[in-house]
Design a binder for these strands. Sequence first.
RNA 1: GGGCCUCUGGCGAAAUUGGUAGACGCACUAGACUUAGGAUCUAGCGCAGCGAUGUGUGAGAGUUCGAGUCUCUCGGGGCCCACCA
Length: 830
Amino acid sequence: MKELYYPQGIEKKWQEKWAEEKVFKTYDNSEKPKYYALSMFPYPSGKLHMGHVRNYTITDVIARFKKMKGYNVLHPIGWDSFGLPAENAAMQHGANPAKWTDENIAYMTKQLNMLGISYDWDREVTTCKPDYYKWTQWLFLQLYKKGLAYKKEAAVNWCDKCGTVLANEQVIDGKCWRCDSVVEKKYLSQWFLKITDYAEQLLQDLDKLEGWGDNVKTMQANWIGKSSGAIFRFKVVDAPSGEEMEVPVYTTRPDTVHGITYLVVAPEYKDIDKLTTAENKKAVEEYRANARKMSEIERLSTDRPKTGVPLGTHCINPFTGETFPLWTADYALVEYGTGAVMAVPTHDERDFAFAKKYNLPMKIVISPTDRELKVEEMENAYTDEGILVNSNEFNGMKNTEAKKAITQKSVDNGFGEFKTQYRLRDWLISRQRYWGAPIPVVYCDKCGIQPVPEDQLPVMLPEDVDFSVVGKSPITTSKTFKDTVCPVCGGHAVREMDTMDTFICSSWYYLRYADAKNSDKPFDKALVNKWLPVDQYVGGIEHAILHLLYSRFFTKALKDIGLLDFDEPFKNLLTQGMVLKDGSKMSKSKGNTVDPDEIFQNYGADTARLFILSDSPPARDFDWSDAGVEGCYKFLNRIWTLISSNQNDINLKYNLPENLSKEDDKLVRIVNIAIKGITNDIETDFQFNTVISKYRELVNSISDWRKSKGDLTEEEKQVFSFAIATLIKLMSPVTVHLSEEIWENLGGEGSIHNQPWVEYDENKAKLADFTLVVQINGKVRDKITVDESMSKEEMEQTALASEKVKEYTVGKTIVKTIVVPKKLVNIVVK
RNA sequence: GGGCCUCUGGCGAAAUUGGUAGACGCACUAGACUUAGGAUCUAGCGCAGCGAUGUGUGAGAGUUCGAGUCUCUCGGGGCCCACCA
């Protein structure tokens, strides 16, 4: 336990008082302009970690600053409380996940209060509570009605360890995002949200998001993965059944269509059986079985040699009249494009490798302008731009132009079309787990899929479940949940047993804060339009794709449904860096975690808040060091000592005299410079690290000034009071308890957190003199302190009169002089 | 392979946006006070040099009176995506 210089217990005292007086409550009806500051809400995993501390401190300082600046600030918090860890904990202890979750929420709430965050707790939302998930279900039904939620049989990502399917976004390098086990493909009937309907809008509107970093925007753009190309349909000339068949392909290189020498379909291609001859059937089926067994990781590995088998059938190229064979190979992906690719080995790396291996023919159709390609000499595909050859009427055309011309020909002749393709897939939201919002749908023997009527919401999670089951969702053990009545015919129906992906819960929580206690609807439209979009969203970069893309989709969909009037939820996004210790990410396995509770206890929350903001800008990683905490703690004690030992000389109702001595005037100017700099650093870029260095500079200046004086005169007391009062107000968004305590001790009225932000006097926000830098040919040769008001001409004369300048210019001619006002004089000599 | 970000003392980092490079802090060194110092205060601290001075922002070139900042070429590190046709 550290000895505290400032009184122990002040943090708790103020936290209780603020809660009692509801200092941070937000009211909807206010004349002031609104400001919505939001941290990404936490998963109640048990305890806060330092990443949370950083996140919430950053947002808290922003919220408090904006409040002092005269905004009506909304700064809420809640819990993203559905999800697997709670269920796993429940399985271990045989208890209901709700209990584990509630306990964690209680503990973490206590910690958030200990950190002194200015939340309006009256707007707290908890996604696992029926009063919240009722509306998650209701929103699902609105999406369903709009045709944006549908069920289909599909190859899905299956994590065996979690016993559930995963969205594409939740598969990282072929592994489960949560437990890191290898993901398999399974065929299941699952619910999807049609996020692909919004692919173009999600991509285009990224341009509107000026307050987002380019890194996040590019990640999203890459994920959406737009590409432009063509679809060509090739007639099959020898289908075993004799029927007329076509194989459509998607390509971004229509310019190479005359160079096709074979065609590849994915092993899972839907018509593959009908395209396989009897004599090839055995080999093809073996190949497909093999492909099915392979994990995603093996299959997608780019350095694996290409494999494939011929189907025995052929297509005709309508551009050339040539026929070419069909193959199946696992480098074609069934989910992308049409599941089939036209192969032009000379101009595509993958096709080249494949053709080399299986000795398939090659034909050059794009020629570089500076040399001639020869098939026999090629060691790589030629994928750069060039001029078309061997391409009939398109010969001589630039390939960039040929793309359009060739596609146009296919359109005119009815065997092709222009096509824009996205990599984004629909969002798979079914989870075979208990701890989530039940999908509000029933299956009637007669009427099929039926949504649960809105007046029957919420579909409550059953409590009579056995959490000790393995290999299936605990929800299936309930005796009361499954059987129900069809809302249409009144006959027997069974409930959907899957729950929703928790990312659905977190895709709309920021809307609920605008109207958190509404029991008639998810939120009032006027209120949500008033508060949203979020003015400043703060959270980790790990959500760059998942949560942020889903939330954008939800906002756009809900706008189209008519529930709100804006189409982007988060105006400005700050992605904070990680908190490191000894250069690597804090983790339990590395044993380099720092427990916030210990820091609160040993140093207090103000020290923790100050330190976590101090060393790095918010977007960069932050290296936690014990020495750094110590340093911040000492700094706070310096302030406490400075003020408490001079308390009788400080009066918050100070009156700055007109005429000041040189030193007193200098201090007043330094204070004004600090106000200007700190305000600017917070407003422009949330550069809290420089804000804190400016606190330190200011304290250093005040201390030095005080040390240079004996007993203070009346005038000096006014100057000192001005400096101290300004200091604690400037620091109040960061060191929230210490500032409040000092404020009270100095006789301040009310809470310092209800004070307006300090303003500065522009005329005083600069020093009375400056250092005139004298350069010769751009090198600094002299520095002269001169009066702030010195004109350009005087600067030049002063510089030329300098002894140093004379030394350097002797025997040389002055070509010209450049004078930068209030800064420097550069003398160019020869 | 594609994209984005990044590179400044022993360390975290500043730099009014083209104008004194290294503010502020950590660590370190010396001194003061002290029974003690892991408290506090004072001074020093990019590198080379006793010094004048030279040199210095990943490397190299360019533009400019002047470049950490702008342009080009190259390299290191990080993140995201990736057999996406």
